Amino acid sequence: MSIQHFRVALIPFFAAFCLPVFAHPETLVKVKDAEDQLGARVGYIELDLNSGKILESFRPEERFPMMSTFKVLLCGAVLSRVDAGQEQLGRRIHYSQNDLVEYSPVTEKHLTDGMTVRELCSAAITMSDNTAANLLLTTIGGPKELTAFLHNMGDHVTRLDRWEPELNEAIPNDERDTTMPAAMATTLRKLLTGELLTLASRQQLIDWMEADKVAGPLLRSALPAGWFIADKSGAGERGSRGIIAALGPDGKPSRIVVIYTTGSQATMDERNRQIAEIGASLIKHW
Rank of each mutant, 00 (worst) to 15 (best):
Glu175Asp: 12
Leu199His: 10
Leu196Asp: 14
Ala225Phe: 12
Ala133Phe: 07
Ala148Arg: 08
Ser68Lys: 00
Asp113Glu: 07
Trp286Gln: 03
Ala211Met: 15
Val258Thr: 04
Ser51Gly: 03
Ser281Leu: 08
Glu277Asn: 14
Phe149Met: 04
Arg92Ile: 06
Asp212His: 10
Arg162Glu: 05
Trp208Gln: 06
Ala185Lys: 01
Lys190Tyr: 15
Gly248Met: 02
Met153Asp: 02
Gln86Leu: 02
Glu108Phe: 15
Thr193Glu: 02
Met153Ser: 02
Val78Ser: 09
Ala222Ser: 04
Leu100Lys: 15
Ala225Met: 14
Phe58Gly: 11
Leu146Pro: 01
Gly85Gln: 06
Ala246Leu: 09
Gly76Phe: 05
Met66Thr: 10
Glu108Arg: 14
Glu56Ala: 04
Arg81Pro: 01
Ile244Lys: 00
Ala132Gly: 15
Ile244Tyr: 11
Thr179Phe: 00
Gly142Asn: 10
Leu223Tyr: 03
Glu46Ala: 15
Ala276Thr: 10
Arg273Pro: 10
Gly239Leu: 01
Met153Val: 02
Asp48Met: 02
Gln37Pro: 08
Ile93Met: 15
Asp207Pro: 09
Leu38Ser: 13
Gly39Leu: 08
Asn173Thr: 11
Leu282Trp: 05
Leu223Trp: 13
Phe64Cys: 04
Arg63Gln: 14
Asp174Ser: 13
Arg63Trp: 05
Ala133Ser: 02
Ile229Cys: 06
Asp269Ser: 09
Arg41Ala: 11
Lys109Ile: 04
Leu160Trp: 05
Ala84Thr: 09
Trp227Thr: 05
Pro143Gly: 09
Arg202Pro: 03
Thr178Trp: 01
Asp33Val: 02
Glu169Met: 08
Val117Ser: 09
Ile283Lys: 05
Glu62Asp: 02
Gly142Lys: 05
Lys144Ala: 03
Pro165Asn: 09
Arg162Ile: 01
Thr187Leu: 15
Ser233Phe: 01
Trp286Val: 05
Val82Met: 13
Pro249Gly: 09
Thr69Ala: 11
Arg189Glu: 06
His151Lys: 04
Leu100Trp: 15
Leu188Val: 04
Thr112Lys: 14
Asp207Phe: 05
Ala182Lys: 03
Gln265Pro: 08
Gln204Asp: 06
Gly216Lys: 08
Pro65Cys: 13
Leu73Asn: 10
Glu62Asn: 02
Ala148Val: 04
Gly114Pro: 08
Asp269Gln: 05
Pro65Thr: 07
Ile54Gln: 06
Glu62Ala: 02
Arg202Met: 09
Asp33Glu: 02
Pro249Leu: 07
Asn152Val: 05
Ala185Phe: 00
Lys71Tyr: 00
Ile278Met: 14
Asp36Glu: 08
Thr267Cys: 03
Thr147Gly: 07
Trp208Pro: 01
Glu35Gly: 10
Met115Leu: 03
Glu119Leu: 07
Gly226Arg: 08
Arg238Leu: 11
Ser201Pro: 10
Glu166Phe: 13
Gln203Val: 07
Glu62Pro: 00
Glu164Tyr: 07
Asp174Glu: 15
Gln97Asn: 02
Asp48Cys: 14
Pro165Asp: 13
Pro172Asp: 03
Leu196Phe: 10
Tyr44Glu: 01
Gly114Thr: 03
Arg202Glu: 12
Ile256Gln: 02
Thr131Asn: 03
Asn50Glu: 06
Gly234Phe: 01
Leu188Ser: 03
Gly279Pro: 01
Thr261Asn: 11
Leu38His: 10
Arg176Phe: 14
Thr107Leu: 10
Leu223Gln: 08
Leu146Phe: 13
Ile278Asp: 00
Gly142Trp: 04
Ser254Ala: 07
Gly263Ser: 13
Arg255Tyr: 12
Glu62Tyr: 02
Gly216Val: 11
Val72Thr: 08
Phe70Val: 12
Ala266Ser: 05
Gly43Thr: 02
Ala235Ile: 15
Ile283Thr: 03
Thr193Arg: 12
Leu282Ala: 10
Lys213His: 03
Thr198Pro: 06
Tyr260Gly: 01
Val101Gln: 04
Thr126Asn: 08
Gln88Leu: 10
